[in-house]
Amino acid sequence: MLKIAASIQEERLPVNGQKLPRFQRLIHEWLPGNIHLVESDDIKQVNQDMHCVIADACMGNWKVTIIDAANSFNPYLLDRYTENEDTTTILKKILLARPFQTQQHVSLIDQAYRQIRHNRQLVLATSFFQPFRQALKENAEENITVDLMQSVRLLQKVAVKGATVIVTDKISASNPLIPFSKVHLQFRNLGSNIWLDQLLAHPFLPPNQYRHVEQQVKKSLSQQLTLHDFF
């Protein structure tokens, strides 16, 4: 089914290579009807970088749905990538929900699946396996396996329906999504911005196109500081 979806010639999500070096220089476009798995040992950084992808999608009039298990969505960070666009308008285009446990995770992917109406739609799932890891750690969930299988299956259905699916997660030995991902990026030592030493199973970029990329992320001074901010 994945193959069928991949063969559909849909409009692809363009990227702005000048703004954010990392993913955008590696990937020229995100493919509709496919799952893109982005793994890194610095998942916080990857989730921050994803704001650029979100901004690109919104500015290209794509509909964006975020299943934010990492709780990493930062509107102030997004503001940096939206250039001259009105951030409020951009924010209105983004649908977001956060799963905090496995059952909620399944339920949210299901909701995302039901909401897909057209093809210009990006579904971003940050730190996809975080709720499952947490459940295993707490030993609180009995049906982790069932929920996990259902999550993966539903995510496939989302892709098959034509959405561009990007999944981020930290590197794990055997990520259950690998067999289902058309594109699988794996970054190591991303935190120190030295080399992207692994780029696995990427259909378009041969290994000789690895590049050294750097990104300066400034802290957002968005919080209210004094009483005067209110009056």
């Binding site: 209105k92 285009k93 983004i94 929900a97 956060r98 905090f100 059952q103 909620q104 909401q115």
Partner: peptide, 16 residues
């Protein structure tokens, strides 16, 4: 069984 009700999808502007 369990707690199934998660957060509902909402626009990030509303979330803010």
């Amino acid at each position: 069984q369990g707690k199934a009700k998660g957060e509902l999808f909402k626009s990030s502007e509303l979330l803010l």
